[in-house]
Simulated scan of single mutants.
Amino acid sequence: MIIEIIHRRDANDALEYGAHVGKHATPDGPAEEIDGSLLPGARLEDYYSEFERVHALRPEIKRNVIHIIVSFAPEDGRRDQVELSEITRKVLGKLGYGDCPFRETEHTDKQFQHLHCVTSIVNYSGERIDRTGDRNKAQRIARAIEREHGLWRAPSVKGGPVLPPLPIPGTISVLQKPAAPMLLWESRVKHMADQVIRPGITLPQFHDELLALGVSLEPKWTQDRTKITGLGYRFEGRQKNASQIDRGLSLNGLKNAGVSYDPVRDVPILTKPGTATPKYLPLPLTLPLLAAPTIRTAAALPKLPPPPRLNPEVHHVRPQVVSTRKPFLQTAWEFATRLWDAIRRPGPIQPKPRLSNR
């Protein structure tokens, strides 16, 4: 599912494009209306008047039209009008356009199902909708709607692997692998992380729910283990840093996506050993190279005894040779001192020989 947001100036032109009438007419005829802010059966002229009435509340705003395109993956098939209307109203509400006039139509000129929704940047109260970060917000909304309606994930309008929907986190076993094994390792890890990311979730909860899908979150710590400097992800015996997978999986990327991280609250939980729940069994410590356990699931490693001292009479111990050579600086200093004393040593003044022309 992809949500595109286009900022436009002319409401009449945007409404005509969505309805496929006027200069935007097609041989297939007018587009089917799915939903709108007016009563069913309202004419297009009624929407012209509705948008003009709302825009008159803020005449200083010139570019006051928002064109939202909602596209579905071909694997999603055809969705009925009730579900399409529900999805569109969720998108408008979460983007802040729930109290604005809108008209939604469905176009059939593509191989996949997609909707065109024209709305206003000014609501019925005359307030301007804040568009700060709306494209990043649209991606998070798309991931949430995909989880709720079981939709496939189309990552970008420019193409890319279409990822299948996964069940709700926690409903599959740890040993079960996700579908579509032909996908890249990074894409599969990113897809499973997107299934878990949601606003308000804490970092330990994100760790637990991601571990239920088979992906282990491995924080990178400072030397005193009081601060997280980075994140790593382990899946199917392979481990990569977040920067090698996707920037959205880094610590700052998770914060921007709504994941709550409080060092005072989360660091003691993530660094405390032996706090794993029964379904998150720690991996065997005898195979640290095959599947290194995370900090939360690893038991405290035993301290090794000091190595025994060797007996020179029994073992062949190389005797320690004590060097009698002086350090270089000490030798150089002594030489310079003796040279300086020799120069300043008082002695008889020898007269200089005079040159003669004879």
Rank of each mutant, 00 (worst) to 15 (best):
Asp224Gln: 07
Glu75Gly: 03
Leu95Trp: 08
Asp266Ser: 06
Gly230Pro: 04
Glu45Cys: 06
Ile87Arg: 04
Asp109Gly: 02
Thr26Gln: 09
Leu175Arg: 09
Pro101Ile: 13
Pro167Asn: 13
Leu175Val: 13
Val82Thr: 12
Pro74Ala: 07
Val259Gln: 00
Asp262Trp: 14
His149Ala: 13
Ile295Tyr: 03
Asn357Tyr: 14
Asp35Thr: 04
Arg153Phe: 14
Thr277Leu: 14
Thr277Tyr: 11
Leu270Val: 00
Pro101Tyr: 12
Lys272Trp: 13
Tyr47Thr: 02
Asp341Ser: 09
Arg78Ile: 14
Arg131Val: 13
Arg153Leu: 10
Ser125Ile: 04
Arg225Ala: 04
Arg58Glu: 09
Leu203Lys: 00
Leu39Phe: 14
Asp194Met: 11
Val321Gln: 04
Leu339Asp: 04
Arg344His: 12
Val82Cys: 03
Lys110Phe: 13
Trp152Met: 05
Pro59Asn: 03
Ala56Ser: 12
Gly29Lys: 03
Arg79Phe: 15
Leu329His: 03
Ala73Glu: 01
Thr294Gly: 10
Arg153Thr: 13
Ser156His: 15
Asp46Gly: 08
Val157Leu: 07
Arg265Lys: 09
Arg153Ser: 11
Arg147Val: 11
Glu334Asp: 12
Arg143Glu: 05
Leu304Gln: 05
Gln205Ile: 03
Arg296Gln: 04
Leu15Asp: 01
Asn12Arg: 11
Leu184His: 13
Pro59Leu: 07
His24Glu: 03
Ile269Pro: 00
Pro306Phe: 12
His116Met: 09
Leu213Glu: 01
Glu4Ser: 12
Ala138Ser: 07
Ile145Pro: 01
Asp134Ser: 05
Arg325Trp: 12
Leu84Tyr: 11
Ile129Leu: 11
Leu163Asp: 03
Arg225His: 07
Asp99Ser: 10
Gly150His: 14
Thr297Ser: 08
Arg225Pro: 00
Arg53Asn: 08
Thr324Asp: 03
Lys279Ala: 08
Ile66Val: 13
Ser71Glu: 04
Arg78Trp: 14
Gly248His: 02
Asn64Lys: 08
Gly96Met: 05
Ile168Tyr: 15
Pro278Phe: 15
Pro319Phe: 15
Asp99Trp: 11
Ser243Asp: 07
Leu115Ala: 03
Leu304Pro: 02
Leu283Thr: 05
Ala180Ile: 10
Asp130Ala: 10
Gln205Lys: 05
Asn252Trp: 12
Glu32Thr: 14
Phe102Met: 03
Leu355Glu: 11
Ser323Gly: 01
Pro268Arg: 06
Thr222Asn: 11
Gly77Leu: 11
Gln350Leu: 15
Ala193Cys: 13
